[in-house]
Design a protein around this nucleic acid. Sequence first.
DNA 1: GAGATACATGAAATTATTTTATGTATGGAT
DNA 2: ATCCATACATAAAATAATTTCATGTATCTC
Lengths: 303, 303
Amino acid sequence: MKLLRNALLETFVTVADCGGFSEAQYALGITQSAISIRIRDLETSLGYRLCDRGRGGFRLTERGETVYRRARSMLRSARDFDAGLMELRGTVTGDLRIGVADAVSSLPGLNLTQALQRFGARPNDVQLDITVASPAELTQQLITGALHVAIAPFRNQIADLEYEDLCQEEHRLYCGAGHPLFTLQGQEAAPQDIAQYPLCQRSYDRLPLAGLAAGEPAASAANMEALAMLIATGQYLGPLPAHFADAWVRGGRLREVNGPEMRWVTTFHLATRRGQMHRRAISLFAEDVRRSCQTPPAAPGPG
Amino acid sequence: MKLLRNALLETFVTVADCGGFSEAQYALGITQSAISIRIRDLETSLGYRLCDRGRGGFRLTERGETVYRRARSMLRSARDFDAGLMELRGTVTGDLRIGVADAVSSLPGLNLTQALQRFGARPNDVQLDITVASPAELTQQLITGALHVAIAPFRNQIADLEYEDLCQEEHRLYCGAGHPLFTLQGQEAAPQDIAQYPLCQRSYDRLPLAGLAAGEPAASAANMEALAMLIATGQYLGPLPAHFADAWVRGGRLREVNGPEMRWVTTFHLATRRGQMHRRAISLFAEDVRRSCQTPPAAPGPG
DNA sequence: GAGATACATGAAATTATTTTATGTATGGAT
DNA sequence: ATCCATACATAAAATAATTTCATGTATCTC
């Protein structure tokens, strides 16, 4: 259903996404002629050109870029608006845009797969859309409405969003095969010993590594798997979530450094925009996440 | 121009505003038949009834109320969206919804009339809409987008809004004819004397009346003129902006109590929603307000 | 220069919306 | 109870808006 439909804007956004009229006709399900006319009409009523096109290629004009961004956002609002009205009927519809942090799938204490199964098992007609991004990006997208919910360790919480604690994630310090500390069988390295080796960290969301050099890490990676690979080179020490590193440790590619002395805990949150909960799909999903989430024991036992 | 038009929603909102189909046909410029069909189509696609109608009278259903509120807000966003796209053309259009506090027109140090004149003198095609409300209400309306700018003394500032100091307003303590303190010719009353008389205040935006009883005022009024009337009864002491009370004092209906000892200053702000300034009309108006505003001397001289 | 691509355009066809004309139901007056 | 006026619903006709079809123009590639 489309209440706040606007053929012209939707056409323009699709054309921009498709990079041309001819390609967009399949996405829109209308002929290229119709697209040509719609874009012409839109440009006429706006009074300026939105894109340069022709055999020479397709390109948005500067204003076209602006209109594209705003129109995208407006159409998203319109879809959410429609979904909200449909939900008054009792049915749960619309799309639900979920953002999660890296490597959330193996997080113990939060079974996201189960949460998604539960949500899917409800009588609903919701189109799910899941993306992975850094906490900062997730925050940004929640604010603009590009996302409805996000699950990540939100270190900086902002007033516009609403946060709910979900579970803890334990980070430990690891080294890779070839690292001087890799061969220490069962022994522990002295903290001051550890401090002299180069560190790698995630480029966003740096842990406050108490006891280690607080300076710039020697290397960083935007992605958990990428970070693990860095550590696995044997050139760096680096923190990883225990649940994530486990597979690597079992594979003999990583080894924990110093055991219980070098462990940190971060909290995962479920974040939504304030007042956004009036979309039923959102609060239902939040409920499913909550149910698939058991707070781990306060004192983490040995892996 | 209407890009994000939706005949159905607009029809529904207008019908609700008009309280019936027959009346709405004049507002919408279409026949009652067309309205009937549009509302039926809207209800059909939503799957629920929006209003009860007929000879028995017109009434929104419960869901209708919800849809009405949301649709109003959505249509407002759509209008602002359109205005934003039009402004990319260079012209300044759309509507500009301004909210001001009570009695802002006589505020010295801020010539709002002049600001409006300046704005009107610019080449633009903007539809102005000015409302008067309490700071709390203005804040609420800025957040929802019902207002674009507001001018008032905002004592509680919130993160979502952006505030800019405009000017000071001096408040003094007054009594009315018939009040025991009214006849004190040139003399001052002792502060502890003053404290025993009942006070009246504005129901919102209470001044911190240093030196006076901080308890509940004996009377309150939501409006400046109403407050002045309360004081003029001779039954209460009360604070008023000096610029506002002047006319009453000259008319012999009010008299200042205690002169320089009983004066308070509040700051007027111009508030907008963060990131809202990309509507050109808004920033132009803000500029006009700024230019029509001279900060008064730090130490206020005698009236 | 031929062929292909990418979009524009006029006329016809189709689809959507509105009006006209009339119907139904209800409250109030007699 | 009957009649009238009000308020909305509906079918059919009229009008308007949109889309397709068929074809045209320009440009890029070879």
